[in-house]
């Protein structure tokens, strides 16, 4: 009941905001005449400074500055696994001067599970997707299982297998919950504080499986074995490893790193920003930095991204309501 109440309040608040914004726009119509952008653009990063999302966003900002002709200021707004920043950008002035570089969790995982104070579809307009670390299904190299099927077969027949993820109710957790429901495999989730702790727990044989990104060197070194990727496409570094869907399960966790603007941002400004950022993200300079960071460059248009977000939001909502039963 309280959820309905909150939803209603949020809607009312939203309407009042729109009404006020419209009134303001009528007053300041002269502002439309000036070229866009005529002052620095703020790019909000929903995580702390120094992480891969932050470093790649800063590089992108640096590369887009000469194209836009205005400085792009990166502002870190960490906390709440990204939802705090999303909430504040959702309420920012939709004038094209506030953007956010967001990832899967705040874009479509957490909002599907609980009230976060924003709606990823109604409040945001995706500009483009430019990265997204592949998440793998990893086991130790000395483990007896060679394929995902062997692993699931064992878990179906009396072996209890534990899997580590970067945190409770993340995309990796949800996809494996769906997998264990679908296959009736005995898979026990053990959440850790971040992907590196989950990887360490696997390396130390404290868990059987880890669903984590940044596995490339550990797999090549022969310490870990990659069985599948959770994403919707294969990891180009390991072209022989199938996705979950290609392994015969209708489950995916597409990892995104995307730029979004508040939904009401005027279309001409969106076009300017989209063109400029797409140009910067497809540049060689950006590709080089991402290679150093061990992050893929995955370009996707705003429309395609919106479809991905919408599909996954629906899927995860369904899964969450099933979990609550």
């Amino acid at each position: 009941m309280s959820y309905h109440q909150q939803g209603f309040d949020a809607l009312l608040f939203h309407r009042i905001t729109i009404a006020l914004a419209t009134a303001l726009l009528l007053v300041t119509t002269t502002a439309w005449a000036e070229p866009f952008p005529s002052r620095p653009v703020t790019l909000v990063v929903p995580y702390g400074a120094g992480g891969t999302t932050d470093i790649s966003a800063r590089q992108l900002a640096k590369l887009v500055e000469p194209i836009l002709g205005q400085p792009v200021v990166v502002e870190n707004h960490p906390g709440g696994g990204g939802i705090n920043a999303m909430r504040s950008v959702a309420r920012a002035d939709p004038d094209g001067y506030t953007l956010i570089a967001t990832t899967s969790s705040p874009a479509f995982v957490t909002p599907a599970l609980r009230d976060v104070g924003y709606d990823p579809i109604q409040d945001f307009l995706p500009l483009l997707n430019y990265s997204g670390p592949y998440h793998g299904v990893l086991i130790n190299a000395d483990s007896p299982y060679r394929t995902l099927d062997e692993l699931l077969e064992a878990a179906r027949n009396g072996t209890r297998l534990t899997y580590a993820t970067a945190g409770a109710l993340g995309g990796a957790h949800l996809s494996f919950t769906a997998l264990s429901r679908e296959t009736h495999a005995d898979l026990q989730h053990v959440p850790f504080d971040g992907a590196s702790s989950a990887t360490a727990a696997l390396l130390g044989h404290h868990v059987d499986i880890a669903l984590v990104p940044a596995y490339c060197d550990l797999v090549n070194d022969g310490r870990l074995r990659l069985l599948a990727v959770l994403d919707d496409e294969r990891d180009p570094d390991f072209p022989s490893i199938p996705t979950l869907a290609q392994s015969g399960h209708d489950i995916e966790f597409p990892s995104i790193v995307a730029l979004m603007a508040p939904r009401e941002t005027p279309a001409d400004r969106i076009d300017t920003l989209r063109d400029a950022f797409t140009q910067a993200a497809s540049s060689d300079a950006f590709a080089q930095v991402m290679k150093k960071l061990n992050q893929p460059v995955r370009l996707m248009s705003g429309e395609a991204l919106e479809a991905v977000i919408e599909k996954n939001l629906t899927d995860y909502r369904e899964l969450a309501s099933e979990l609550k039963k």
Binding site: T52, D54, I55, D217, N220, D221, R223, K292, L293
Partner: peptide, 13 residues
């Protein structure tokens, strides 16, 4: 992150 940016990827290699 700083090590990676300098091309020195920490890890087994």
């Amino acid at each position: 992150g700083a090590f990676m940016l300098q091309g020195l990827t920490p890890g087994p290699f």
